[in-house]
Computed example of a mutant assay.
Amino acid sequence: MNASEIAVIIPCRNEAGSISDVLARVPDGVQSIVVDNGSDDDTAAAARAAGATVVYEPEPGYGSAVGAGVAAARRPVVCTIDGDGSMDPQELLMLVAELDRGADLAVGRRRPDHPRTWPLHARAGSAVVAAYLRRRYRLPIHDIGPMRAIRRDTLNGLNVGDRQSGYPVELLLRAGQHGLRVVERDVRYTVRTAGESKVSGSIRGSARAARDFLVVLR
């Protein structure tokens, strides 16, 4: 698949310290769409200076930000990755290649390079939900991560509606319900390059994300 067919959506809230480096590592030819989800720092200015398309989404929530990015994308394949520098945008090409091989959705399984990269309280909710989706829908997944690739028309057909942290869970849930072929590949996961995590950086943030996961599964 040609890079000119791919857009990467990067939801951000106060990621001015890391977004420039993330954008510098996006593969050549891939369109970068940074969704500023209520930042009060220079995230948008830094992203624009680095050549990204900047979209503003005032409604807080991961799902809101991704939805705004998908609406702005005009390329047939859309990817997502966080803007904190914890994952390498170059690995998106590995996921896109799985679409060429017949996958409907390719997702990254985070492989931390150090114990402090992904605290136990942060990974627990993801592991439990992934186990449920494996049992219920036979999806070959072990993580509910932020790096993924899917054709835009396929994504729009799933009608994912969650506006908060439950978005990735609902995406996988609907993929299972529709019988889509889901492929998981390992991706490197490192300590964020700047700022503080809104989810895994605290027990409270992880608990809030777990709550959103469970709401989707009801």
Score class of each variant (00 low, 15 high):
residue 119 P to H: 02
residue 171 L to K: 01
residue 135 R to C: 07
residue 110 R to E: 14
residue 177 Q to V: 14
residue 139 L to Y: 03
residue 154 T to L: 06
residue 118 W to L: 15
residue 165 S to A: 14
residue 116 R to Q: 15
residue 157 G to Y: 05
residue 168 P to H: 04
residue 146 P to L: 12
residue 111 R to W: 03
residue 123 R to Y: 07
residue 135 R to H: 13
residue 139 L to M: 09
residue 117 T to Y: 01
residue 163 R to A: 10
residue 128 V to F: 06
residue 114 H to V: 03
residue 123 R to D: 02
residue 159 N to S: 10
residue 165 S to L: 11
residue 138 R to G: 08
residue 136 R to G: 06
residue 136 R to Y: 00
residue 176 G to E: 04
residue 132 Y to R: 14
residue 114 H to A: 15
residue 121 H to R: 07
residue 166 G to K: 06
residue 175 A to S: 15
residue 112 P to I: 03
residue 143 D to Y: 03
residue 123 R to S: 11
residue 168 P to Y: 08
residue 162 D to V: 06
residue 120 L to T: 12
residue 114 H to L: 04
residue 143 D to S: 06
residue 122 A to C: 12
residue 141 I to N: 01
residue 161 G to C: 10
residue 168 P to W: 05
residue 138 R to A: 13
residue 157 G to C: 05
residue 122 A to I: 13
residue 149 A to T: 07
residue 129 V to D: 01
residue 149 A to W: 01
residue 174 R to P: 03
residue 153 D to M: 04
residue 119 P to I: 06
residue 122 A to D: 13
residue 174 R to D: 06
residue 118 W to G: 05
residue 118 W to D: 15
residue 150 I to K: 11
residue 135 R to P: 00
residue 113 D to P: 07
residue 110 R to S: 13
residue 130 A to D: 03
residue 136 R to M: 04
residue 172 L to T: 08
residue 128 V to A: 15
residue 142 H to P: 00
residue 139 L to Q: 02
residue 137 Y to W: 10
residue 127 A to C: 07
residue 131 A to P: 07
residue 126 S to N: 11
residue 116 R to G: 07
residue 125 G to Y: 05
residue 153 D to V: 13
residue 121 H to M: 04
residue 144 I to A: 09
residue 157 G to N: 08
residue 116 R to C: 09
residue 143 D to H: 11
residue 165 S to H: 06
residue 113 D to H: 09
residue 128 V to G: 01
residue 169 V to I: 01
residue 152 R to L: 07
residue 167 Y to I: 03
residue 150 I to S: 10
residue 131 A to M: 09
residue 160 V to E: 02
residue 177 Q to M: 15
residue 174 R to Y: 04
residue 157 G to A: 08
residue 139 L to S: 02
residue 145 G to S: 14
residue 164 Q to G: 00
residue 111 R to C: 13
residue 155 L to D: 08
residue 135 R to F: 12
residue 162 D to R: 14
residue 146 P to I: 12
residue 140 P to A: 06
residue 169 V to H: 03
residue 167 Y to W: 15
residue 127 A to H: 00
residue 165 S to K: 01
residue 128 V to P: 02
residue 125 G to D: 02
residue 161 G to K: 12
residue 147 M to G: 05
residue 143 D to I: 00
residue 160 V to T: 02
residue 137 Y to P: 05
residue 144 I to Y: 05
residue 122 A to M: 11
residue 171 L to I: 01
residue 163 R to L: 12
residue 152 R to D: 03
residue 116 R to N: 13
residue 176 G to D: 07
residue 117 T to L: 01
residue 175 A to N: 02
residue 120 L to K: 11
